[in-house]
Write a protein that binds this DNA or RNA. Structure first.
Lengths: 179, 179
DNA sequence: TCGGAATGCTTGCGTTTTGCAAGCATTTGC
DNA sequence: GCAAATGCTTGCAAAACGCAAGCATTCCGA
């Protein structure tokens, strides 16, 4: 612990890294949303403002949670990548999603991913982390997961399913109520 | 989700509850430190200031993470209690402690609890949660844990052991080096 | 070749939150 | 009856936040 830290307690130090209103949401969008660029991250569900996003990205890079690189296909694009440090946050994300779903007024669409992550348990988390390592760190595909449907795609499909069901849902309810 | 929330995402809603620099540390001190009173919480490792502590306690009560009651033994004392909502944060605390210990510059004394929680795994967490329910919610002792050494006492003893070793430690190292 | 869209930010500026120090009315224990 | 302990509150300066707008560069399609 150096003088920059309030204490050497692991919980405190964790809070110092991502204990603010935005950092975890940025990481969430990168992990579960597959977002890699500034403008993508700007379109968050919660509407982060650009100066805050710029600031947080800088801090997360500084702390080793992300790396930043030029996009070879587009000279003015920067690509942000997760590191092992942030990838290892996946189980915490899963727990946090489960806890929030249990205690807070979540919406169906946005909690379906948490539900699936919870049901999948550590095995699913490991698969997901392995896929993230492949995507962000260039690690080779783990043999165990070769051919399996990617976790993010599975979660995304479930999300869209709920959205679709809801869109038709109110009509179906009306019909039911009228019959 | 009502208008007070940025979105219905479980991770976002969790962040809205304890995503700040202090709330989790207050809960940490209540859970692992057994603190129940304002003045106790004020003596945190990280030196929270009294206005912030007062504000956070009010918010945590408002959100259902804590309850506040008069201390029957002392007319001007308030007792803060955990609720099931905050007790169910124990696994997240454990993960957070493990993650912080892995990636951040923790001190030996303050990470020993995290280490033991990690090694103990879900079984230990369950015992701990059961004890907290007894202490804070007045639940009867779970039969499975009757007679077992309380988790908090075990963690505390380990902490003190590390402190003691460190105090005498530099001398011991000298002796070893000299022999 | 040229105009519109997209890129990752930055800049101002007003509002809110934080952090520090001090204080306060009451109650307790000796 | 007095010092210590109780849970806070108050003032005030500094930092962080949030919003809107803008900016230089690059890309892409016509």
């Amino acid at each position: 612990m150096d003088a920059n830290h309030r204490s050497g307690c692991p919980i405190n130090l964790s809070v110092e890294v991502f204990g603010d209103k935005w950092s975890l949401l940025i990481l969430r969008d990168m992990i579960f949303g597959g977002k890699r660029h500034f403008r993508e991250l700007l379109r968050s569900e919660e509407a982060i403002s650009s100066n805050i996003l710029a600031d947080r990205l800088r801090m997360l890079v500084e702390q080793g949670m992300l790396t930043k690189a030029d996009d070879p296909t587009h000279k003015q694009k920067a690509i942000y990548s997760l590191t092992e440090m942030s990838i290892s946050l996946v189980p915490i994300m899963a727990h946090l999603g489960a806890w929030g779903s249990r205690w807070l007024p979540v919406s169906d669409e946005l909690s379906i991913r948490a539900k699936l992550m919870d049901e999948g348990g550590p095995a699913l988390w490991e698969q997901f982390m392995s896929e993230l390592r492949e995507e962000h760190l260039g690690h080779p595909t783990a043999a165990a997961y070769a051919g399996a449907e990617p976790v993010r795609a599975k979660l995304q499909a479930a999300y869209e399913e709920v959205v679709k069901r809801k869109a038709g849902g109110s009509q179906a309810v009306d019909i039911d109520a009228a019959s």
